[in-house]
């Protein structure tokens, strides 16, 4: 048990020192993560009302449609949204049940 605690402590210290070593890229990536999380929040909120196309999400959120498409593509790849048929010339997407972000 003590060994396990020691391991966890060492691991945390190692990660901390690595974060210090890669400070510049870590900070840049943290800013990117924050930015993306805020976009994702807006997209998820818009999609609460049911299946939507990319232009519909873009209109509801005020985000550029190409950025919405990129995020929906990312969410689809990691099973956070799924495709549910078409509306005109656009695919519709809805939040997956296992939405966990």
């Amino acid at each position: 048990m003590t060994d396990k605690k020691e391991d966890t402590k060492n691991r945390a210290a190692m990660l901390k020192s690595l974060r210090e070593k890669h400070k510049e890229t870590v900070e840049k990536t943290q800013a990117l993560l924050k930015h993306n999380q805020s976009i994702r929040k807006q997209i998820r909120q818009a999609m609460q009302s049911g299946p939507m196309t990319v232009p519909e999400v873009a209109e509801a959120t005020g985000l550029p449609s190409d950025r919405v498409l990129w995020h929906v593509t990312a969410m689809k790849k990691y099973d956070l949204v799924r495709e549910v048929g078409m509306s005109g010339e656009y695919y519709q997407y809805e939040l997956a049940q296992k939405e966990n972000q």
């Binding site: 449609s65 498409l69 929906v72 593509t73 010339e89 656009y90």
Partner: peptide, 16 residues
């Protein structure tokens, strides 16, 4: 592929 379909990158429209 990224979309699983042929869609255009600006808004995901299926191009005609």
């Amino acid at each position: 592929g990224p979309y699983g379909h042929v869609l255009r990158p600006s808004d995901g429209k299926e191009p005609d």
